[in-house]
Amino acid sequence: MSSLTVYADDRPGVACLHLTDPARIAAELGRIGVRFEQWDSPVVPPRDATEAEVLDAYRPYLDQLMGETGAGSADVIRVRPDTAGWAQARGKYLSEHVHSEDEVRFFVHGQGDFILHVNGHVYDVRCTARDLISVPAGTPHWFDGGEVPDFVTLRIFTNPDGWIAQYTGSDIAVRFPVEA
């Protein structure tokens, strides 16, 4: 289930807000410029679908989104417990960073947490299947797909080089681990 838990950035473990209603999550995140929505596709590709099948299933949504954002490419990332290099990649994602473009993800299967650090608060957004999140360029955040990951996401990029992070050097991600 999708959720949003908000903390003061000096009070780890003490939630000041917890939401599970997608409309309320979208409204709360909208206050800090983050787009959150759920897509209702008539076709949900199987977990082992090819990249082309996944992209085709969501093509109407992708075309509209890419037109709105000016994004130039989309791809599919599939991470499972046996994905080679996950532990090393997870370490990169778990460090607070920013991007020069919006980070846009749509969860086809599974779940992951985008954790945002904005205006003295930490926003832990648990994204699950059918969720789209767009983290604005320059927003400090990190991502946790879990120690035993199992997710399929669409990634939308403007920069043809793909995912490029500038790390903030903050240790805040260590102080706010994702609760399972």
Rank of each mutant, 00 (worst) to 15 (best):
P45Q: 13
A89P: 12
L55V: 09
V125S: 15
Y167M: 03
A137P: 03
A52L: 01
R31N: 09
I32S: 01
H117K: 13
V79H: 02
H109C: 03
G162H: 14
V34F: 08
T20A: 14
V34I: 14
G162W: 15
R155P: 15
G30I: 03
K92S: 10
A8N: 05
P136V: 01
I133F: 09
F106I: 09
S41A: 10
R11P: 06
Y167E: 03
S100P: 08
T168W: 06
I32M: 04
W163N: 04
N119L: 01
V34C: 13
S170A: 00
A87F: 12
F107K: 02
L132P: 11
Q111M: 02
E37C: 02
Q111V: 08
L132E: 03
A71G: 12
Q38L: 02
R35C: 06
E37V: 09
A89W: 14
R31K: 09
A180P: 12
G120I: 07
F114L: 11
D82M: 13
A26H: 09
L29F: 08
S100D: 14
D9S: 06
S41K: 03
R35F: 01
S2T: 15
A26K: 00
G146S: 13
Q64F: 01
V108T: 09
S100E: 14
P46C: 13
T5I: 15
V125C: 15
A52T: 02
T50Y: 05
D82K: 14
M66Y: 03
D21E: 02
G146M: 09
L17A: 05
T69K: 09
V148P: 04
D171L: 01
Q64E: 05
Q88F: 05
G145L: 07
L4N: 10
D63S: 02
D171N: 03
Y7M: 01
S134Y: 11
A52I: 05
A74F: 09
G169H: 07
L19A: 09
L94G: 07
T168E: 00
G13N: 06
Y93S: 04
T50L: 03
A129P: 15
T168K: 04
V34G: 08
R175I: 02
W86G: 07
G138V: 08
H141F: 10
E103L: 15
T5F: 13
A71L: 14
A165D: 02
Y123P: 12
V148M: 04
D161C: 11
G138N: 06
F176L: 05
D102R: 14
P42N: 13
L19M: 06
A87H: 11
L94E: 11
G162N: 09
G162M: 14
I156A: 02
F151K: 09
T5L: 13
T153E: 10
I156L: 09
V174W: 00
A87D: 10
T83R: 11
G120P: 07
T20P: 10
F157P: 02
A165V: 04
R11L: 07
P45S: 10
L94A: 06
H99P: 07
G70K: 12
E68L: 05
L132Y: 04
V135L: 13
R155Y: 07
W39T: 00
